[in-house]
């Protein structure tokens, strides 16, 4: 079950659309649910479906289409690095390798201490500032040289 607060937020999203088009709020609702739970479990998808009067399978389609939705638990910090062509040409593949080395994990893996998960992402609309890393879907870090990547990792390692 989602918390009162999340339910309220979802209500607010639903209110933005005509009553017979509640399902338009599905993406926003999934984000809110994921923010609360950290990932989208089957039960969570079910309750979103119920809130929006949608077929559960239709919610699942959305949740599996976009890779910002986590269908499995992640580490405390999910680092998503864009590996699309423009970023790739500007060093993001090297940056990704550096992250893998530093964290000792590959894509779609989580460090044993549960702190980091590494993911490959699609264009984030910041190609001019490659390489781009997104932290927990919300914090965008750009021009990620090796130094800046190290600094990011150190910062997140030390954070509470």
């Amino acid at each position: 079950m989602l918390s009162e607060e999340s339910l309220k937020k979802i209500e607010r999203e639903i209110a933005k659309y005509p009553p017979d088009q509640k399902q338009s709020a599905v993406m926003a609702a999934l984000i809110i649910a994921q923010d609360e739970k950290g990932w989208l479990a089957t039960e969570t998808l079910d309750s979103v479906a119920q809130l929006l009067g949608m077929a559960p399978v239709a919610v699942y389609e959305v949740a599996t289409f976009y890779n910002m939705y986590n269908r499995a638990p992640t580490g405390r910090y999910k680092l998503t690095i864009c590996t699309c062509l423009p970023c790739g040409l500007q060093g993001s593949l090297d940056a990704a390798d550096h992250l893998k080395d530093r964290l000792g994990i590959g894509f779609n893996e989580t460090t044993p201490d549960g702190r980091f998960t590494l993911k490959e992402g699609e264009c984030m609309g910041a190609c001019a500032m490659a390489p781009v890393v997104l932290v927990n879907n919300k914090r965008m870090c750009d021009a990620m040289s090796k130094e800046r990547l190290d600094a990011l990792i150190d910062e997140l390692r030390e954070s509470a």
Binding site: P56, V57, E61, F65
Partner: peptide
């Protein structure tokens, strides 16, 4: 029951989840 889930080359027909 049936959905078309995932994306790109991973797209597939699914039953429920």
């Amino acid at each position: 029951v049936i959905g078309y889930a995932q994306r790109g080359e991973h797209s597939k027909i699914v039953f429920d989840f």
